[in-house]
């Protein structure tokens, strides 16, 4: 297996959780990651020093923000507030309208749709098409599989399978993340690939979703092209 650079784009650390960033980084390095993105909720980070990462770890940990909005206007306002200031904007999805607004907005990098947590709302094929047009990646949150059992897990896996079908059809970008809140939630890249195979992802696809796509997102590879086109 050739060496890939693996990235985990959704990890929560201090001040949102009690785990210091340094400890997460040590474990992630040990597991073979090339980088992780610390995406704390914007409301927690606001007005605290923990929002900035120390420069010593800047080449490994990337700063991101996770936006959890309740209304459309709130979502738009917050995206505009953080755009350009942080390298990674993740939007936690919710209702169908919220998902649609996030996927139509090219400023958003990753959408984390709810898998079974809020029940029925999912992504439809129309929304995934918007995601492909605007280069918004769709997150597959493996923490939801790890921390649920029986019927809950079956529902989540079913939903992921559906979304994967749309993602393949419209060539949207899938991203596999751990959504870890502690060092015990982190999993090594090979384990993530094995977990992704539970909902029907091929090995190559999963490796791609863990390495090339996250790297491209952090470098804004696709977004840059778009900006050039707009000018």
């Amino acid at each position: 297996m050739p060496t890939f650079k693996f990235f985990d784009l959704n990890v929560h650390a201090y001040p949102e959780t009690e785990v210091p960033v340094e400890e997460l980084i040590r474990v992630a390095r040990r597991y073979g990651y090339a980088g992780i993105a610390i995406t704390n909720y914007d409301e927690v980070v606001k007005g605290k020093e923990g929002g900035q990462l120390p420069p010593s770890i800047a080449n490994f940990a990337f700063r991101g923000i996770e936006i959890r909005a309740k209304s459309l206007s709130e979502l738009k306002r917050r995206i505009r507030l953080y755009y350009g200031k942080v390298p990674l904007i993740v939007v936690r999805g919710g209702s169908k309208e919220l998902n649609e607004a996030a996927l139509k907005n090219p400023m958003v990098d990753v959408l984390a749709p709810p898998y079974g947590e809020h029940g029925k709302e999912g992504l439809t094929h129309v929304l995934v098409r918007y995601a492909a047009e605007n280069d918004v990646a769709i997150e597959f949150n493996l923490n939801a599989i790890i921390h649920s059992r029986r019927s809950d897990r079956a529902r989540i896996l079913g939903k992921m399978r559906d979304i994967l079908k749309f993602v393949r059809k419209y060539k949207a970008m899938p991203v596999i993340t751990s959504n870890a809140h502690s060092i015990y939630d982190l999993r090594a890249p090979r384990e993530m690939v094995a977990l992704a195979s539970l909902f029907g992802m091929q090995k190559e696809e999963a490796v791609h979703a863990l390495s090339d796509i996250p790297e491209g997102i952090l470098e804004k590879k696709w977004k840059k092209k778009r900006e050039v086109e707009i000018i």
Binding site: S182, I183, Y184, D185, L186, R187, E191, M192
Partner: peptide
């Protein structure tokens, strides 16, 4: 990889 805790103790396996 699916194991997250054993008798209330959080753990991770690699």
């Amino acid at each position: 990889a699916c194991i997250h805790s054993a008798s209330g103790v959080r753990l991770g396996i690699r």
